[in-house]
Amino acid sequence: MKPIRILFRSISSAFKSVIRNLSLSVASISCIIITLILVAFAVLLSANINNFTSDIEDDLTMVVFVKKETTDEEIEDLKKNIDAVPNIRDVVYKSKVQIKDEMSKEDETYNRIMSEWKEDENPLKPAFIISVDKIEVMGETANTIMNLEHVDIVKYGKNMVESLVDIFDIVKKVTYVAVIALVFVTAFLISNTIKITIYSRKNEIDIMRLVGTSNMVIKLPFLFEGLFLGIIGSILPVIFTIYGYIFLYDKMGGVMFTKIISLINPYDFVFKVSAVLVVIGAVVGMYGSYKAVRRYLKI
């Protein structure tokens, strides 16, 4: 089969070239390794953050206490108003009596104290238990509710959640920027390596053109060379991902930050991330060599 033979010859020629230009190849490969390790870091981290933000969200509720002297009708109105606020997933009303009963059940001491209250002596305030859709804008949601009529106090785990989300958001963004910058540096380095290969084989390329070698056959080895550099460069990051993540997962017992957050189970997950790394390496490598071929191998 002609195309298959041409493919194999291109691949073997590309492979020889990687070895012939070893020092340059090593420079490109090192850059890919650094880039992909950062990518791995970013992907592992952001996948886990998405995972735990949904973990937290499941439990995360806001409690809205209503002013004491509010009438039942006003409470009815307030519920409608709360329902109309954006980002609200669920609203449950608890009357003074319900709250008292629940607290009594939970704790023996509460029970003893509360059982002495008479019906009209209950000092508790009625409350709405609210769950939200997005933690990131929980602060805004709380403010909006706070401004509604008859609302006394809004309580939620504000500081911890907000600061965690903020920190991880910054980490994510910084990593993305670093990865994008590194991808460009890597593509440039690969393109430079391929350029040198093209120049070092100028003689051969000129002869091939003169004897009627097709353009595709002339170009293919260089494209493969970039591809190889990319794939070779992804080997170490893949090992880092698989062993590093499994190690961390075991070491931390599958959780992060005192068990609020459970880490994603490594199996399957690490292999998916590895596949992403290999694909990125291959694409960046091909892109670099494509640029070099377009620019320096005009036919």
Binding site: P3, V211, V217, I218
Partner: peptide
């Protein structure tokens, strides 16, 4: 190498 580059066997 001429014929190789044409994809001959």
């Amino acid at each position: 190498f001429v014929l190789e580059s044409y994809g001959y066997k």
